[in-house]
Design a protein around this nucleic acid. Sequence first.
DNA 1: TGAATCATGTAATAGGTTACATGATTCT
DNA 2: AGAATCATGTAACCTATTACATGATTCA
Lengths: 182, 182
Amino acid sequence: MQSITLLGYALLGLLHGKASSGYDLRKTFTETPMGRFSDSPGAIYPALRRLEERKLITESAIVQPTKRRRKALQITPEGRVASKAWLRRPLERADVTSHMTTLMLKFAFMDGVLGEAATLRFLCSFQQELNAYIPSLASYIRAESGRLPRSGQLALESGWRGYRAQAQWVAHAISVYGGTAK
Amino acid sequence: MQSITLLGYALLGLLHGKASSGYDLRKTFTETPMGRFSDSPGAIYPALRRLEERKLITESAIVQPTKRRRKALQITPEGRVASKAWLRRPLERADVTSHMTTLMLKFAFMDGVLGEAATLRFLCSFQQELNAYIPSLASYIRAESGRLPRSGQLALESGWRGYRAQAQWVAHAISVYGGTAK
DNA sequence: TGAATCATGTAATAGGTTACATGATTCT
DNA sequence: AGAATCATGTAACCTATTACATGATTCA
Protein backbone atom coordinates (compact mmCIF):
# COMPACT_ATOMS: atom_id res chain seq x y z
CA MET A 1 0.00 0.00 0.00
CA GLN A 2 1.56 3.24 -1.17
CA SER A 3 1.66 6.01 1.39
CA ILE A 4 -0.29 9.19 0.90
CA THR A 5 1.69 12.07 -0.58
CA LEU A 6 1.88 15.54 0.86
CA LEU A 7 -0.42 16.74 -1.87
CA GLY A 8 -2.86 14.04 -0.84
CA TYR A 9 -2.85 15.22 2.74
CA ALA A 10 -3.27 18.80 1.60
CA LEU A 11 -6.33 17.80 -0.40
CA LEU A 12 -7.74 15.80 2.49
CA GLY A 13 -7.15 18.77 4.77
CA LEU A 14 -9.06 21.06 2.46
CA LEU A 15 -11.89 18.57 2.10
CA HIS A 16 -12.26 18.30 5.87
CA GLY A 17 -14.03 21.61 5.69
CA LYS A 18 -16.43 21.19 2.82
CA ALA A 19 -16.94 19.10 -0.28
CA SER A 20 -15.19 20.67 -3.26
CA SER A 21 -14.49 19.94 -6.87
CA GLY A 22 -11.06 19.44 -8.34
CA TYR A 23 -11.39 22.85 -9.88
CA ASP A 24 -12.13 24.46 -6.53
CA LEU A 25 -9.08 22.83 -5.01
CA ARG A 26 -6.92 23.92 -7.90
CA LYS A 27 -8.09 27.49 -7.42
CA THR A 28 -7.11 27.32 -3.78
CA PHE A 29 -3.58 26.51 -4.84
CA THR A 30 -3.43 29.18 -7.52
CA GLU A 31 -5.07 31.99 -5.63
CA THR A 32 -3.73 31.58 -2.12
CA PRO A 33 -0.12 31.46 -0.95
CA MET A 34 -0.82 27.96 0.31
CA GLY A 35 1.93 25.45 0.58
CA ARG A 36 3.23 25.99 -2.92
CA PHE A 37 1.45 23.08 -4.45
CA SER A 38 1.16 22.75 -8.14
CA ASP A 39 -2.17 23.84 -9.51
CA SER A 40 -1.75 21.76 -12.61
CA PRO A 41 -4.58 19.38 -13.44
CA GLY A 42 -2.03 16.69 -14.17
CA ALA A 43 -1.13 16.70 -10.49
CA ILE A 44 -4.47 17.25 -8.82
CA TYR A 45 -6.85 15.00 -10.73
CA PRO A 46 -4.66 11.91 -10.49
CA ALA A 47 -4.10 12.65 -6.80
CA LEU A 48 -7.85 12.86 -6.26
CA ARG A 49 -8.39 9.63 -8.15
CA ARG A 50 -5.85 7.89 -5.91
CA LEU A 51 -7.63 9.15 -2.82
CA GLU A 52 -10.90 7.97 -4.28
CA GLU A 53 -9.50 4.51 -5.03
CA ARG A 54 -8.51 4.20 -1.41
CA LYS A 55 -11.98 5.33 -0.41
CA LEU A 56 -10.65 8.31 1.50
CA ILE A 57 -12.89 10.57 -0.53
CA THR A 58 -16.06 9.95 -2.57
CA GLU A 59 -18.12 11.75 -5.08
CA SER A 60 -20.71 13.75 -3.21
CA ALA A 61 -24.24 12.49 -3.73
CA ILE A 62 -25.71 15.93 -3.28
CA VAL A 63 -27.02 17.20 -6.60
CA GLN A 64 -25.92 20.77 -7.01
CA PRO A 65 -28.24 23.18 -8.71
CA THR A 66 -25.48 24.66 -10.85
CA LYS A 67 -25.51 24.37 -14.59
CA ARG A 68 -21.88 23.49 -14.96
CA ARG A 69 -20.54 20.01 -14.97
CA ARG A 70 -19.05 19.54 -11.58
CA LYS A 71 -17.77 16.59 -9.61
CA ALA A 72 -17.92 17.49 -5.96
CA LEU A 73 -15.74 15.37 -3.72
CA GLN A 74 -16.23 14.82 -0.04
CA ILE A 75 -14.07 13.22 2.58
CA THR A 76 -15.14 9.84 3.96
CA PRO A 77 -14.87 8.70 7.59
CA GLU A 78 -11.81 6.67 6.60
CA GLY A 79 -10.38 9.81 5.04
CA ARG A 80 -10.86 11.72 8.26
CA VAL A 81 -9.14 8.96 10.17
CA ALA A 82 -6.16 8.99 7.81
CA SER A 83 -5.89 12.76 7.90
CA LYS A 84 -6.09 12.89 11.67
CA ALA A 85 -3.50 10.16 12.03
CA TRP A 86 -1.16 12.21 9.90
CA LEU A 87 -1.81 15.39 11.84
CA ARG A 88 -1.18 13.56 15.08
CA ARG A 89 2.12 12.02 14.10
CA PRO A 90 4.68 13.23 16.61
CA LEU A 91 7.10 15.84 15.41
CA GLU A 92 10.69 14.84 14.91
CA ARG A 93 13.93 16.70 14.57
CA ALA A 94 14.14 16.02 10.86
CA ASP A 95 10.76 17.71 10.35
CA VAL A 96 12.18 20.94 11.67
CA THR A 97 15.44 20.75 9.77
CA SER A 98 14.05 19.80 6.41
CA HIS A 99 10.28 19.74 6.25
CA MET A 100 9.14 23.06 7.62
CA THR A 101 6.56 23.61 4.92
CA THR A 102 5.00 20.29 5.85
CA LEU A 103 4.81 21.37 9.46
CA MET A 104 3.12 24.62 8.52
CA LEU A 105 0.66 22.73 6.35
CA LYS A 106 -0.17 20.51 9.28
CA PHE A 107 -0.59 23.47 11.54
CA ALA A 108 -2.94 25.20 9.13
CA PHE A 109 -5.37 22.28 9.25
CA MET A 110 -4.82 21.15 12.79
CA ASP A 111 -6.96 23.63 14.65
CA GLY A 112 -10.07 22.84 12.66
CA VAL A 113 -9.54 19.10 12.66
CA LEU A 114 -7.95 18.18 15.98
CA GLY A 115 -8.92 21.20 18.05
CA GLU A 116 -7.20 23.77 20.16
CA ALA A 117 -5.55 21.54 22.75
CA ALA A 118 -3.85 19.34 20.18
CA THR A 119 -2.71 22.38 18.24
CA LEU A 120 -1.18 23.89 21.32
CA ARG A 121 0.65 20.66 22.06
CA PHE A 122 1.91 20.64 18.50
CA LEU A 123 3.18 24.20 18.80
CA CYS A 124 4.97 23.38 22.04
CA SER A 125 6.87 20.46 20.59
CA PHE A 126 7.61 22.57 17.53
CA GLN A 127 9.07 25.19 19.83
CA GLN A 128 11.05 22.61 21.70
CA GLU A 129 12.64 21.25 18.54
CA LEU A 130 13.44 24.74 17.28
CA ASN A 131 15.01 25.73 20.56
CA ALA A 132 17.17 22.65 20.40
CA TYR A 133 18.13 23.03 16.76
CA ILE A 134 18.89 26.73 16.50
CA PRO A 135 21.87 26.75 18.89
CA SER A 136 23.32 23.66 17.26
CA LEU A 137 23.09 25.31 13.86
CA ALA A 138 24.67 28.43 15.30
CA SER A 139 27.61 26.53 16.69
CA TYR A 140 28.01 24.68 13.41
CA ILE A 141 28.21 28.02 11.62
CA ARG A 142 30.71 29.35 14.14
CA ALA A 143 32.85 26.27 13.72
CA GLU A 144 32.77 26.31 9.92
CA SER A 145 33.03 30.06 9.47
CA GLY A 146 36.76 29.90 8.93
CA ARG A 147 36.68 27.20 6.29
CA LEU A 148 33.78 28.56 4.25
CA PRO A 149 33.79 31.31 1.64
CA ARG A 150 31.95 34.47 2.54
CA SER A 151 28.89 33.56 0.51
CA GLY A 152 28.63 30.07 1.96
CA GLN A 153 28.81 31.51 5.43
CA LEU A 154 26.11 34.05 4.67
CA ALA A 155 23.92 31.36 3.13
CA LEU A 156 24.06 29.40 6.37
CA GLU A 157 23.28 32.55 8.29
CA SER A 158 20.20 33.05 6.19
CA GLY A 159 18.99 29.64 7.28
CA TRP A 160 19.70 30.48 10.88
CA ARG A 161 17.75 33.73 10.64
CA GLY A 162 14.86 31.88 9.09
CA TYR A 163 14.70 29.43 11.96
CA ARG A 164 14.89 32.26 14.46
CA ALA A 165 11.97 34.00 12.77
CA GLN A 166 10.06 30.74 12.91
CA ALA A 167 10.81 30.44 16.62
CA GLN A 168 9.49 33.92 17.20
CA TRP A 169 6.39 33.01 15.27
CA VAL A 170 5.86 29.87 17.34
CA ALA A 171 6.09 31.89 20.53
CA HIS A 172 3.54 34.29 19.12
CA ALA A 173 1.25 31.49 18.02
CA ILE A 174 1.44 29.83 21.41
CA SER A 175 0.40 33.04 23.09
CA VAL A 176 -2.50 33.38 20.65
CA TYR A 177 -3.58 29.88 21.62
CA GLY A 178 -3.51 30.89 25.23
CA GLY A 179 -0.46 28.88 26.17
CA THR A 180 2.44 30.09 28.21
CA ALA A 181 5.12 31.11 25.79
CA LYS A 182 8.78 30.20 26.07
CA MET B 1 17.35 18.57 -24.87
CA GLN B 2 16.23 18.10 -21.29
CA SER B 3 17.01 20.99 -18.99
CA ILE B 4 19.39 20.60 -16.09
CA THR B 5 17.75 19.90 -12.75
CA LEU B 6 18.37 21.81 -9.57
CA LEU B 7 20.40 18.90 -8.28
CA GLY B 8 22.46 19.09 -11.46
CA TYR B 9 23.22 22.76 -10.89
CA ALA B 10 24.07 22.06 -7.27
CA LEU B 11 26.57 19.43 -8.37
CA LEU B 12 28.04 21.72 -11.01
CA GLY B 13 28.34 24.45 -8.40
CA LEU B 14 30.24 22.18 -6.07
CA LEU B 15 32.50 20.99 -8.87
CA HIS B 16 33.40 24.55 -9.80
CA GLY B 17 35.67 24.52 -6.82
CA LYS B 18 37.49 21.24 -7.11
CA ALA B 19 37.14 17.84 -8.69
CA SER B 20 35.25 15.47 -6.43
CA SER B 21 33.89 11.97 -6.42
CA GLY B 22 30.24 11.09 -6.16
CA TYR B 23 30.93 10.00 -2.64
CA ASP B 24 32.44 13.36 -1.72
CA LEU B 25 29.42 15.15 -3.11
CA ARG B 26 27.08 12.87 -1.22
CA LYS B 27 28.90 13.62 1.98
CA THR B 28 28.50 17.32 1.36
CA PHE B 29 24.76 16.80 1.29
CA THR B 30 24.67 14.59 4.35
CA GLU B 31 27.05 16.53 6.52
CA THR B 32 26.24 20.14 5.76
CA PRO B 33 22.90 21.91 6.00
CA MET B 34 23.15 22.51 2.27
CA GLY B 35 20.10 22.92 0.19
CA ARG B 36 18.39 19.81 1.52
CA PHE B 37 19.32 17.62 -1.36
CA SER B 38 18.97 13.93 -1.12
CA ASP B 39 22.17 12.15 -0.33
CA SER B 40 20.93 8.91 -1.80
CA PRO B 41 23.15 7.27 -4.40
CA GLY B 42 20.05 6.66 -6.51
CA ALA B 43 19.77 10.39 -7.00
CA ILE B 44 23.36 11.50 -7.24
CA TYR B 45 24.98 8.91 -9.48
CA PRO B 46 22.36 9.10 -12.21
CA ALA B 47 22.52 12.90 -12.01
CA LEU B 48 26.28 12.77 -12.45
CA ARG B 49 25.95 10.40 -15.37
CA ARG B 50 23.53 12.80 -17.05
CA LEU B 51 25.96 15.67 -16.60
CA GLU B 52 28.71 13.49 -17.99
CA GLU B 53 26.62 12.52 -21.02
CA ARG B 54 26.16 16.19 -21.79
CA LYS B 55 29.88 16.73 -21.37
CA LEU B 56 29.40 19.22 -18.58
CA ILE B 57 31.68 17.15 -16.38
CA THR B 58 34.34 14.51 -17.13
CA GLU B 59 36.28 11.96 -15.26
CA SER B 60 39.42 13.57 -14.01
CA ALA B 61 42.56 12.25 -15.66
CA ILE B 62 44.63 12.90 -12.60
CA VAL B 63 45.60 9.63 -11.01
CA GLN B 64 45.11 9.92 -7.30
CA PRO B 65 47.53 8.17 -5.02
CA THR B 66 44.75 6.79 -2.83
CA LYS B 67 44.17 3.11 -2.51
CA ARG B 68 40.42 3.25 -2.75
CA ARG B 69 38.51 2.99 -5.96
CA ARG B 70 37.50 6.51 -6.70
CA LYS B 71 36.07 8.24 -9.73
CA ALA B 72 36.94 11.91 -9.49
CA LEU B 73 34.80 14.18 -11.61
CA GLN B 74 35.74 17.61 -12.83
CA ILE B 75 33.76 20.34 -14.50
CA THR B 76 34.42 21.04 -18.17
CA PRO B 77 34.53 24.45 -19.84
CA GLU B 78 31.02 23.77 -21.19
CA GLY B 79 29.95 22.94 -17.66
CA ARG B 80 31.25 26.23 -16.41
CA VAL B 81 29.38 28.04 -19.16
CA ALA B 82 26.12 26.27 -18.29
CA SER B 83 26.54 26.91 -14.59
CA LYS B 84 27.34 30.57 -15.12
CA ALA B 85 24.38 31.02 -17.44
CA TRP B 86 22.14 29.63 -14.74
CA LEU B 87 23.63 31.83 -12.05
CA ARG B 88 23.21 34.86 -14.27
CA ARG B 89 19.56 34.28 -15.10
CA PRO B 90 17.67 37.36 -13.95
CA LEU B 91 15.61 36.96 -10.83
CA GLU B 92 11.86 36.98 -11.17
CA ARG B 93 9.00 37.48 -8.81
CA ALA B 94 8.11 33.81 -8.82
CA ASP B 95 11.61 32.94 -7.61
CA VAL B 96 11.01 34.93 -4.46
CA THR B 97 7.51 33.64 -3.83
CA SER B 98 8.19 29.98 -4.41
CA HIS B 99 11.80 29.15 -5.04
CA MET B 100 13.72 30.73 -2.20
CA THR B 101 15.91 27.70 -1.63
CA THR B 102 16.96 27.90 -5.27
CA LEU B 103 17.90 31.52 -4.81
CA MET B 104 19.98 30.74 -1.76
CA LEU B 105 21.70 27.92 -3.62
CA LYS B 106 22.56 30.34 -6.39
CA PHE B 107 23.85 32.85 -3.93
CA ALA B 108 26.08 30.34 -2.21
CA PHE B 109 27.92 29.61 -5.44
CA MET B 110 27.75 33.01 -7.05
CA ASP B 111 30.56 34.77 -5.27
CA GLY B 112 33.13 32.18 -6.19
CA VAL B 113 31.93 31.76 -9.76
CA LEU B 114 30.73 35.15 -10.96
CA GLY B 115 32.53 37.42 -8.53
CA GLU B 116 31.65 40.14 -6.10
CA ALA B 117 30.05 42.64 -8.43
CA ALA B 118 27.59 40.14 -9.90
CA THR B 119 26.74 38.86 -6.43
CA LEU B 120 26.00 42.35 -5.22
CA ARG B 121 23.77 42.96 -8.22
CA PHE B 122 21.98 39.71 -7.45
CA LEU B 123 21.45 40.71 -3.85
CA CYS B 124 20.06 44.07 -4.89
CA SER B 125 17.46 42.61 -7.21
CA PHE B 126 16.65 40.05 -4.54
CA GLN B 127 16.05 42.91 -2.13
CA GLN B 128 13.95 44.73 -4.66
CA GLU B 129 11.67 41.75 -5.21
CA LEU B 130 11.34 41.13 -1.50
CA ASN B 131 10.50 44.76 -0.82
CA ALA B 132 7.82 44.57 -3.47
CA TYR B 133 6.38 41.24 -2.34
CA ILE B 134 6.28 41.63 1.43
CA PRO B 135 3.76 44.49 1.51
CA SER B 136 1.55 42.76 -1.02
CA LEU B 137 1.53 39.63 1.13
CA ALA B 138 0.80 41.75 4.18
CA SER B 139 -2.19 43.37 2.53
CA TYR B 140 -3.42 40.01 1.35
CA ILE B 141 -3.29 38.75 4.93
CA ARG B 142 -5.07 41.84 6.17
CA ALA B 143 -7.80 41.40 3.58
CA GLU B 144 -8.29 37.69 4.25
CA SER B 145 -7.92 37.80 8.00
CA GLY B 146 -11.67 37.95 8.51
CA ARG B 147 -12.48 34.97 6.32
CA LEU B 148 -9.75 32.66 7.54
CA PRO B 149 -9.64 30.49 10.64
CA ARG B 150 -7.15 31.45 13.29
CA SER B 151 -4.68 28.80 12.26
CA GLY B 152 -4.83 29.70 8.58
CA GLN B 153 -4.18 33.30 9.44
CA LEU B 154 -1.23 32.41 11.62
CA ALA B 155 0.17 30.16 8.91
CA LEU B 156 0.17 33.07 6.49
CA GLU B 157 1.79 35.23 9.13
CA SER B 158 4.56 32.70 9.47
CA GLY B 159 5.27 33.08 5.79
CA TRP B 160 5.30 36.82 6.13
CA ARG B 161 7.75 36.68 9.04
CA GLY B 162 9.99 34.39 7.04
CA TYR B 163 10.13 36.83 4.15
CA ARG B 164 10.85 39.68 6.53
CA ALA B 165 13.73 37.75 8.05
CA GLN B 166 15.02 37.10 4.55
CA ALA B 167 14.81 40.80 3.76
CA GLN B 168 16.82 41.61 6.87
CA TRP B 169 19.36 39.05 5.81
CA VAL B 170 19.63 40.54 2.33
CA ALA B 171 20.26 43.97 3.80
CA HIS B 172 22.96 42.49 5.99
CA ALA B 173 24.50 40.60 3.08
CA ILE B 174 24.55 43.72 0.94
CA SER B 175 26.39 45.60 3.64
CA VAL B 176 28.91 42.76 3.91
CA TYR B 177 29.46 43.02 0.18
CA GLY B 178 30.14 46.69 0.57
CA GLY B 179 26.98 47.89 -1.06
CA THR B 180 24.72 50.58 0.26
CA ALA B 181 21.91 48.80 2.03
CA LYS B 182 18.24 49.65 1.65
C1' DT C 1 -21.30 34.32 -32.79
C1' DG C 2 -16.91 34.05 -31.18
C1' DA C 3 -13.84 34.32 -27.13
C1' DA C 4 -12.91 33.40 -22.62
C1' DT C 5 -13.43 30.65 -18.86
C1' DC C 6 -15.31 26.62 -16.49
C1' DA C 7 -14.25 21.91 -15.68
C1' DT C 8 -12.33 17.48 -16.12
C1' DG C 9 -9.28 14.68 -17.74
C1' DT C 10 -5.13 11.83 -20.37
C1' DA C 11 -0.32 10.69 -22.32
C1' DA C 12 4.59 10.94 -22.49
C1' DT C 13 8.35 11.73 -19.98
C1' DA C 14 11.75 12.00 -16.59
C1' DG C 15 13.58 12.48 -12.06
C1' DG C 16 13.58 11.03 -7.18
C1' DT C 17 12.82 7.37 -3.55
C1' DT C 18 13.64 3.08 -1.82
C1' DA C 19 15.87 -0.93 -1.80
C1' DC C 20 19.18 -3.92 -3.35
C1' DA C 21 23.89 -5.35 -5.06
C1' DT C 22 28.84 -5.57 -5.06
C1' DG C 23 33.50 -5.48 -3.86
C1' DA C 24 37.47 -3.31 -1.80
C1' DT C 25 39.75 -1.48 2.24
C1' DT C 26 40.46 -0.09 6.81
C1' DC C 27 39.81 -0.89 11.71
C1' DT C 28 39.67 -3.73 15.93
C1' DA D 1 39.08 -12.76 10.81
C1' DG D 2 35.09 -10.21 10.92
C1' DA D 3 32.80 -5.69 11.07
C1' DA D 4 32.37 -1.24 9.56
C1' DT D 5 32.87 1.95 6.15
C1' DC D 6 34.36 3.37 1.56
C1' DA D 7 32.61 3.72 -3.01
C1' DT D 8 29.91 3.04 -6.99
C1' DG D 9 26.20 1.64 -9.03
C1' DT D 10 21.31 -0.59 -10.75
C1' DA D 11 16.14 -1.64 -10.87
C1' DA D 12 11.33 -0.99 -9.84
C1' DC D 13 8.18 2.09 -8.80
C1' DC D 14 5.72 6.32 -8.42
C1' DT D 15 4.75 11.12 -8.74
C1' DA D 16 4.95 15.62 -10.78
C1' DT D 17 5.63 18.27 -15.04
C1' DT D 18 4.30 19.52 -19.46
C1' DA D 19 1.43 19.49 -23.00
C1' DC D 20 -2.52 18.26 -25.14
C1' DA D 21 -7.65 17.20 -25.56
C1' DT D 22 -12.51 18.01 -25.00
C1' DG D 23 -16.87 19.99 -24.39
C1' DA D 24 -20.03 23.01 -21.99
C1' DT D 25 -21.29 27.63 -20.57
C1' DT D 26 -21.03 32.39 -19.85
C1' DC D 27 -19.80 36.97 -21.59
C1' DA D 28 -19.19 40.73 -24.98
